[in-house]
């Protein structure tokens, strides 16, 4: 007997993964949470039927959303991670001595609990004692904060689910307010390829640009996501991700990575022509 997980990447395209074993399933207050074991991708976390991460390729996503801004900011001490109940971004942040405190805001406590129990490769990030977990709405958490963080990582689901609020103008504006004078915000910026994600990408781009003076988009290849071609947004009050990138300082910290490296840092901001055209059309 064969079980296949299926996710519609569009109305006409399906991605399917053979399931070895269903590990966990729950309808939380906010979303349907499924974790299953697969031959090809290891453990897979799906939220409302959409793959959030797989053990095989999550390192690409988590390294890229973390190390790119960390290699630009000269002294990131206070970091906020919004979303990301899996703990992967925490694991990457944990590699830095300079970080003094990390707030993780994930609205769904059930997701945090499930990840801690069934996704040890990412949930190891929770063991860092610099981390404080807040199970609250991201916008609500940020609303009253001003001049607090050096870096905010917005590790959201796509805008169809509970992550919707993390794509709004009011959220980006609140991030701006909560950042220090030289703060950086990085977000999961959707994909340029299929129309659903590219529309979300354009909206996000437009809204972040209205809140931040600097916005640059970079890319990575994430096989389990629709089209595999994924983007991130680098928004900041001051630093340019290339001009203020300090390769030596980053290398001196001796941080181990599997995807990110300093050559890639420079290349990752070079976008295909059609993606550039999309962003320029905004």
């Amino acid at each position: 007997m064969a079980f296949w997980f299926m996710e519609n990447h569009t109305d006409n395209v399906v991605m399917s993964i053979k399931v070895k074993e269903q590990v966990y399933s729950e309808q939380s207050e906010y979303q349907r949470i499924d974790i299953f074991e697969s031959e090809e991708f290891g453990r897979v976390l799906a939220l409302d039927g959409i793959i959030n991460l797989t053990e095989k390729d999550e390192f690409i996503y988590h390294e890229m959303i973390t190390h790119v801004p960390m290699a630009v900011h000269p002294n990131p001490e206070h970091v906020l991670v919004v979303g990301a109940g899996d703990g992967g971004a925490l694991r990457e942040l944990g590699k830095y001595q300079s970080v003094q405190h990390i707030d993780l805001v994930e609205i769904d406590a059930a997701l945090v609990a499930a990840c801690r129990k069934y996704l040890p490769t990412t949930a190891i990030g929770y063991q860092d004692e610099r981390v404080t977990v807040h199970n609250r709405d991201g916008l609500r958490f940020l609303r009253r904060l001003e001049d607090v963080y050096d870096l905010i990582i917005v590790d959201s689901t796509d805008p169809a689910g509970p992550g919707e609020i993390l794509f709004t103008k009011e959220f980006y504006g609140s991030c701006y307010k909560a950042l220090k004078q030289d703060g950086i915000m990085v977000n999961q910026h959707e994909s340029p390829f299929y129309s659903y994600e590219s529309a979300a990408m354009m909206r996000s781009y437009r809204r972040i640009r209205s809140a931040f003076p600097v916005l640059r988009v970079y890319q990575a290849h994430i096989p389990s996501y629709p089209s595999g071609h994924w983007l991130f947004g680098f928004a900041s009050k001051k630093y340019d991700p290339l001009k203020d990138f300090d390769e030596k300082r980053w290398l001196a910290q001796g941080i181990q990575t599997r995807y990110y490296n300093t050559d890639l840092h420079r290349g990752t901001f070079c976008l295909p022509t059609y993606v550039r055209a999309l962003l320029e059309s905004e």
């Binding site: 916008l139 609500r140 609303r143 919707e164 103008k169 504006g173 307010k177």
Partner: peptide
């Protein structure tokens, strides 16, 4: 829904700031 209230409140905070 609570999340829509959060959006309204968040947007009002932003309107005040800007």
């Amino acid at each position: 829904k609570t999340k829509n209230l959060e959006r309204l409140i968040g947007a009002l905070a932003e309107i005040r700031r800007l």
